[in-house]
Amino acid sequence: MTAPTPTARSSDADVIAESRDRPDRFGVIFDRYFADVHRYIERRLGTDLADDVASDTFLAAFDKRHRYDLSRPDARPWLYGIATNLIGKHRRRQTAQFRAYKQAAMAAVDDDHADEVTARLSAQLSRAALAEALAKLSAGERDVLLLLALAELTHQEIAEALGISYGTVGSRLSRARAKLSRRLRRTSNLAP
């Protein structure tokens, strides 16, 4: 018997194909990506909800494994797409999470040792403004932007994840970024 060489890593597509007859093989996909997908969800919804939604994501993926497009070796866009859909069901929680980020940024202004001085710098205020601007994006714009920023998917992968065209990814992205920079420019003049 020969030991498997370290480089012999099956593609995600191969593993998913095997899992159609041998369901336990899907555990390989879980082991490869659970932590990353959990982190993505955690950043968008907070830790406590992330536990449930990440678990649901892999269960939903398992149920849909027969429909996975085997021409795509990398399963990440597919998994992030499922996660993003599930995140979309928690709109209020998303808003609350952005509010928490905003509060954290504002609290940092208060907590700073030289608060009266640095409040004028509004660096943290800009972070707060960013949280607010992200909360105000449309769901479609936000999903595209956060898959790029947090999940670090490519434009093509985002298109696959969300089932939209490559061109739509580009246009949503530029709209989202334009909105953010408009809002941030208003708060970025630090001089008193």
Binding site: A35, H38, R39, E42, R43, R44, G46, T47, D48, A50, A100, Y101, A105, R127, L130, A131, L134, L145, L146, A149, L150
Partner: peptide, 13 residues
């Protein structure tokens, strides 16, 4: 990067 830094709760996994 700025978005990534903002949306960075302590990892709870």
């Amino acid at each position: 990067d700025e978005i990534k830094n903002l949306m960075d709760p302590p990892p709870g996994l």
